Simulated assay, not measured.
Amino acid sequence: MTAEDSFGRLDDDDYPAYTMGRAAEMLGTTQGFLRAIGEARLITPLRSEGGHRRYSRYQLRIAARARELVDRGTPVEAACRIVVLEDQLEEAQRLNAEYRAASVHV
């Protein structure tokens, strides 16, 4: 991938553009927190060729939501489970809306 290709992907929510240090800085948290939510399997960062963790904007949004819950006193494992369930509910609601819209047009 060329530099030009990489630059063009910066608008892609799934492009792993952020290092662990930069991600932690942006979230106002520690690298240890990012490791903890990775161990809880909330997010799985991609790895650079050198083996360093890289995060996408989508992953940072998920991590930010988990951090909000942890800051309110929710244990990390529970916060990760809540975020996963919220994400699943949002997807189910989106699919239901699509099915309802499709059935109206039939």
Rank of each mutant, 00 (worst) to 15 (best):
T2R: 08
T2C: 01
A3C: 05
E4A: 14
D5I: 14
S6D: 11
S6C: 11
L10G: 07
L10K: 08
D11G: 14
D12W: 01
D12P: 06
D13H: 09
Y15K: 01
Y15D: 09
P16M: 05
A17F: 03
Y18F: 15
T19C: 03
G21E: 04
A24G: 03
A24K: 09
A24P: 03
E25T: 01
L27I: 05
L27A: 08
T29P: 09
T30M: 00
Q31Y: 00
R35F: 06
R35C: 01
R35M: 01
A36F: 01
A36R: 14
I37P: 13
G38L: 04
G38E: 14
E39P: 03
L42H: 10
T44P: 00
P45K: 04
L46S: 14
L46Y: 00
R47T: 01
R47C: 04
E49P: 07
G50D: 12
G51I: 08
H52N: 13
R53P: 07
R54L: 09
R54V: 01
Y55W: 12
S56C: 01
S56Q: 01
Y58L: 09
Y58R: 14
Q59H: 03
L60E: 11
R61S: 12
I62A: 07
I62K: 12
A64E: 14
R65Q: 10
R65V: 00
E68G: 02
E68C: 01
E68W: 07
L69T: 07
L69K: 06
D71F: 05
D71I: 07
D71S: 05
V76D: 01
A78S: 12
A79C: 05
C80M: 05
C80D: 09
R81M: 13
R81P: 02
I82F: 06
V83T: 11
V83M: 12
V84E: 15
L85V: 14
L85T: 12
L85G: 08
D87E: 15
D87W: 06
Q88E: 15
L89P: 06
L89E: 04
L89W: 02
E90P: 04
E91N: 07
R94W: 07
L95W: 11
N96G: 11
A97G: 13
E98H: 09
A101N: 15
A101Y: 06
A102P: 02
A102W: 10
A102G: 02
S103K: 12
H105Y: 10
V106I: 06
V106M: 08
